[in-house]
Amino acid sequence: MSADPNKLAIFVTSPQHMRHVVGLANAAEKAGKKLMIFFTYKSIHLTKDPRFKVLAEKCGEDHIAICADSYTCEGYDAAADIPAGLSGKQMRTQAFHGALLDECGKYIVL
């Protein structure tokens, strides 16, 4: 599969830029671009922000995920406390980040 030139990957590694994640996702949607987002390590705390559920629903099940190991390492329960807006299938590994690199023509880290 070659990278889709109309698809933007957002790799979220910082726990303090939810406004940029949301702002960029909204602007990309407005511009008719597709999105794929992965939250890893301490950025998974952003799943507790009320804006996360809206973001997850906007992206859809195949296009947003979080690192399940990070979620567990940070003390959350990856089995009994799946973040609002996600299903168990979206509790993923770093392989999802690999999919971002492979599938998205554009990429940004936040």
């Binding site: 770093q94 392989a95 980040h97 690999g98």
Partner: peptide, 8 residues
């Protein structure tokens, strides 16, 4: 995270 990409 880098190791995760190496595995891929």
């Amino acid at each position: 995270s880098g190791l995760g990409l190496a595995v891929e």
